[in-house]
Write a protein that binds this DNA or RNA. Structure first.
Length: 310
DNA sequence: AACACGGGGTT
DNA sequence: AACCCAGTGTT
């Protein structure tokens, strides 16, 4: 008769072993994970992957890297081209921040992507997650990486919760650190693999809606499953966000028109947006906000992507 | 801590 | 129609 499994929270080593072993077997072959991918390629991927699924990023990443294989190339590109290649990845201000990062890398880092999380964190559009992710995935530094997948896996396996809750709390940050493999043991190699392995488990197996617990390499350790997989509490469930009629939808429609149609008369462009229920006050407000964000430009009565009005 | 910020596939 | 996605910056 074997003893009950030890608490993974105080003894996470078996979880490290099971999960990293699974990763080596099951990981997807994504272009930014290949050995020959540059640090710039990793940074581009992380910017694109902020709130955008992998499947939609892959083709845009290839096109971006084909056109702008180094920070120097991206730094010199016309803004209108940057936004056009970004296409419908969403949150186009991310494209602006990525180009600004390229310019900072050229101006202040000799064209080389900085290697420490602290330096990366100073780049525009690079927050706590992206700084740690680039330091780890591009430069093998054992930073603690925490994204939405990792928060969910930690919540289930170690905390026994169905979902992690909406905001990243200090408790969750402490948990992520407490289960992180000791970087001293093998120069951080296990720690880096752990980051990507937990993320991959959250993406492929421990998904938000319908986790595949029967296929999970750490099911035997999972506090949530061992507790009977209780459903998420009302607190853990996210609140419904409507989409139709929001400024975000209107801004997106304006950007789509500017990308595909080129410069146009402002009144015509706003009138022809395929959004019948949205009044002109809102259309105009959104046009102004896009101009204020540097995503569009107006001269006289003409509007266009930035730099497209000669 | 709560919001704003895109867009499309899945349930 | 709601939910979800390799988050960041602002208030």
């Amino acid at each position: 008769m074997t003893a009950a499994a030890p608490d993974p929270l105080t003894a996470p080593e078996p979880v490290h072993t099971a999960l990293t072993s699974w990763y080596h077997r099951a990981a997807r072959d994504l272009p930014w994970r290949r050995r020959d991918c540059s640090a710039w390629g990793v940074l581009v991927s992380e910017a694109m992957l902020q709130q955008t699924p992998v499947s939609r990023v892959v083709p845009r990443w290839h096109e971006w890297m084909r056109r702008w294989p180094t920070p120097q190339h991206a730094a010199e590109a016309p803004v209108a081209e940057i936004l056009t290649v970004w296409d419908r990845l969403g949150y186009p201000r991310r494209a602006l921040r990525l180009q600004e990062s390229a310019q900072v890398i050229v101006d202040r880092h000799g064209g080389q992507v900085p290697q420490t999380a602290a330096e990366l964190r100073q780049l525009p559009g690079v927050g706590e997650y992206t700084a740690a992710a680039v330091a780890c995935f591009a430069f093998d530094q054992p930073e603690v990486v925490v994204d939405t997948n990792i928060r969910r896996v930690h919540a289930r396996v170690f905390a026994g919760d169905a979902l992690p809750g909406k905001t990243y709390t200090s408790d969750q940050r402490r948990l992520a650190h407490s289960v992180f493999p000791d970087p001293a043991v093998d120069d951080g190699e296990l720690a880096c693999t752990w980051n990507i392995a937990v993320m991959e488990l959250g993406a492929l197996v421990c998904t938000a809606r319908s986790p595949s617990c029967t296929a999970c390499p750490v099911a035997e350790f999972c506090a949530w499953r061992l507790a009977g997989s209780p459903p998420p509490t009302e607190q853990q469930r996210t609140r419904a966000q409507t989409w139709a009629g929001t400024d975000r939808q209107v801004r997106g429609a304006i950007m789509a028109a500017l990308r595909t149609g080129g410069p146009a008369a402002r009144s015509d462009l706003l009138a022809e947006l395929p959004l019948p229920a949205v009044d002109m006050v809102q259309r105009s407000r959104c046009m102004e906000s896009l101009i204020a964000d540097g995503l569009a430009e107006q001269r006289q009565d003409k509007v266009a992507l930035p730099g497209a009005l000669a």
